[in-house]
C-alpha cells in the first residue's frame, strides 16, 4: 500500500508538471505575456471565475488562438509518442524499440514526400494533404510489415522487426529517389527537412479537435493492456501460459501504438527520442509495471515535448529550430546517463 501511495504521488507530480509546462510555454514567444494573466484568462474560460481583465484583448487572442493550440498540440504529440514507445518496447520486449521501429517513420515520410510532390492544395478537417498522407503512410506501412511477417497464422516478433527494417530502408530509398528526381521537391527541400526533423505545426483548434480524441482514446485504450504487457515481458510463450491471447493482443497493441504514432506524426513530423527516452526514464526511475508506466510516460512525454518545443521556438527567435533537434540534444545525453547509471538492470 505504501508503494501504491508513492506511485500515486509521483503521477500527481507528473500531472502538475505537465500543467505547469502548459502555462509556462504559453507565456513565452514573440510577445511575452505574464503567467498570472494567463492563469486568470484560462480560469475565466473554464470556470465560474471572473477576474477583471489586466491584459489586452490582443494578448488573449494570442494565447487562445495561437499559443494554446500549439502548446496543447505539443503535449498531445509527446503523450502519444511516449505511450506508443511503452507499448512497442513492452510488446517487442526490446528496450531499443521506439514508436517508429516497425516502419511508421519511413511510411509517414514517404507519404508526406509524395503529398509534397503533388500540385494539389487540399484541406480536410483543418489538415493539409501532407499530414493526411503522413498519417495514412504510417498506418499502411505497419499493416504491410505485419502481413509480411505473418507466417502460418502467427507473426513472430523477430520477423516483424526484420520486416520493419527492410521495408523502412526500401521506403527511405524511394523517398530519396523522389527527392532527387523532382524539381518541385528540390525547391521544397526545406519542408521535407522540417518534416523529417519534427516541427509542431498546429495552426488552430480544428486540428486539436481531431487529434485529441485519437490520442486520449489511444492512451486510455493502452491502459487496458497493462497486465498483459507485464505478462508479455516473459515472452510470447510465457504470456500465453498466463492466459494472454498473444496473437490477438499483438494486433490490438500494434494498432493502438501505430494509431498514436500516426496521430503524432500528422501534426509534428518525425520527432525522435521522445518515444525512446521518456519510457526508459520512467521505467528506470519507478519500475517496469505497465499499470504505472503507461500513465507516467504519457504525462512525462507531454511535458517533455512542450518544453522542447518552447526551446525550439525561443532560443534562436525569430528563427525556429526543428523541435526534433532539441529532443535529441536533451534526450541523447540523458539516455546515456540513465544507461550508464543503471546498466545492470538490463540483461542484454
Amino acid at each position: 500500500m505504501r508503494r501504491r501511495n508513492k506511485l500515486i504521488l509521483v503521477l500527481s507530480l507528473l500531472g502538475v508538471s505537465l500543467i505547469a509546462a502548459l502555462f509556462l510555454a504559453s507565456a513565452f514567444g514573440a510577445v511575452s505575456i505574464s503567467l498570472p494573466d494567463i492563469v486568470k484568462m484560462a480560469l475565466n474560460k473554464v470556470a465560474i471565475f471572473d477576474f477583471p481583465s489586466t491584459w489586452r484583448a490582443a494578448e488573449e487572442t494570442i494565447i487562445f488562438q495561437i499559443r494554446l493550440p500549439r502548446v496543447i498540440g505539443g503535449a498531445l504529440v509527446g503523450m502519444a509518442l511516449a505511450t506508443a514507445g511503452v507499448l512497442f518496447q513492452g510488446l517487442l520486449r526490446n528496450p531499443m524499440a521506439d514508436p517508429y521501429i516497425i516502419g511508421t517513420s519511413a511510411g509517414a515520410a514517404l507519404g508526406a514526400t509524395i503529398a509534397m510532390l503533388l500540385p494539389i492544395n487540399l484541406a480536410f478537417l483543418g489538415f493539409g494533404l501532407v499530414p493526411i498522407a503522413a498519417f495514412g503512410g504510417a498506418l499502411a506501412t505497419v499493416f504491410l510489415v505485419y502481413n509480411l511477417a505473418r507466417v502460418g497464422g502467427k507473426t513472430p516478433i523477430i520477423s516483424m522487426l526484420l520486416a520493419g527494417v527492410v521495408v523502412s530502408s526500401l521506403m527511405a530509398a524511394i523517398m530519396a529517389l523522389l527527392i532527387s528526381l523532382s524539381d518541385r521537391l528540390q525547391l521544397n527541400l526545406q519542408s521535407v527537412y522540417s518534416f523529417l526533423l519534427g516541427h509542431i505545426s498546429v495552426t488552430g483548434w480544428e486540428q486539436i479537435a481531431v487529434i485529441a480524441p485519437l490520442v486520449i482514446g489511444g492512451i486510455i485504450g493502452a491502459r487496458f493492456f497493462a497486465f498483459h504487457l507485464n505478462a508479455l515481458s516473459l515472452g510470447e510463450e510465457g504470456a500465453a501460459y498466463l492466459g494472454v491471447e498473444v496473437e490477438r493482443d499483438k494486433i490490438l497493441i500494434l494498432s493502438l501504438g501505430s494509431l498514436l504514432t500516426a496521430a503524432a506524426v500528422s501534426i509534428s513530423g518525425l520527432i525522435g527520442f521522445v518515444g525512446l527516452v521518456v519510457p526508459h526514464a520512467m521505467r528506470l526511475s519507478f519500475g517496469p509495471d505497465h499499470r504505472f508506466l503507461l500513465p507516467a510516460a504519457a504525462l512525462g512525454g507531454g511535458a517533455f515535448v512542450i518544453i522542447a518545443d518552447l526551446l525550439a521556438r525561443t532560443i534562436m527567435a525569430p528563427t525556429e529550430i526543428p523541435v526534433g533537434i532539441i529532443t535529441a540534444i536533451i534526450g541523447a545525453p540523458f539516455f546515456l546517463y540513465l544507461l550508464r547509471r543503471t546498466r545492470k538492470e538490463y540483461a542484454f
Binding site: A231, L234, G238, L242, P288, Y346
Partner: peptide, 20 residues
C-alpha cells in the same frame, strides 16, 4: 528458462501468476 528484459522484482514476477 525465462529471459526478462525489464527489471521486475521477484514479487512482481510472482504476481504475474495472477494475470488470468
Amino acid at each position: 528458462q525465462f529471459h526478462i528484459p525489464f527489471a521486475f522484482t521477484t514479487g512482481e514476477i510472482v504476481m504475474l501468476g495472477r494475470t488470468p
